[in-house]
Amino acid sequence: MQSKRISQAIAFTLFKLMSYAVIVILVLILGFIISRGIGVINWEFLTAAPEEGMTKGGIFPAIVGTFYLIIGSSLFSFPIGIMSGIYMNEYATDNKLASFIRIMTNNLSGVPSVVFGLFGMALFVNTLGFGDSILAGSLTLGLLSLPLVIRTTEESLKAIDNSFREGSLALGATKLQTIQKVVLPMAFPNIITGLILSIGRVSGETAPILFTVAAYFLPKLPNSIFDQVMALPYHLYVISTSGTDIESSRAMAYGTAFVLISIILIINILASVLRNYFAKKVKMN
């Protein structure tokens, strides 16, 4: 009897410790990068181009590049992702086609990001002739984030009780009107949260942009969607592994990692604030 309790106490303590160890790892990583990086951040770092072989200056072109890629990929993945989420949940709930699409979407989300890079290079850069460009990079990133957008949309729609749909249909509204006026507005908060999180994913991806858009060093800003850009994750990769002078560009690397982490943190916090805000609003109604 006693030993049963003791083994439970040991096991539970162990699990608790291991769980906290995981959190400690997270804190260590974030703390390390924030503490090393925050000192590098100043106005010049955020608004100037890199100088002297990436050892001085700033990362402005990389910030702008990442921003463009986020916009570009969202323009592609948001409409298509939301529409296909609507199709899967509202129109094709129970047939073979839907389950086929669902399996394919799952498969696509399991495809490694470097394979997206290969594919983007073969299709957009070479076959369609976009070259290394914002367009090619955005489309590649858009495809990568598509499964995430679809899944969030589908889950947000699924969470809405069927009685709302039936009520609307009973009042004589068509299916499309029901989706447009009843289902979508209700699912909107969750969809938005998912979209924000997908932006976080896109902003940190490196492998898909290696061969589709990213430039090693490009101090001027792009003029069209057929230009190359620098991007934050790629910049961090090159200055920490293959810069001309790795030791003296370390500070720049810490700064870049800090900016990247800050974007991710802000996005995550924003998403959870929105989620809580909307949850409260729903409760009040």
Partner: peptide
């Protein structure tokens, strides 16, 4: 949420760390 954050950190940042 902290564990979700762990999933959100870009792989290049893990690599750098």
């Amino acid at each position: 949420p902290l564990i979700e954050l762990l999933a959100g950190i870009p792989s290049v940042v893990y690599g750098f760390f």
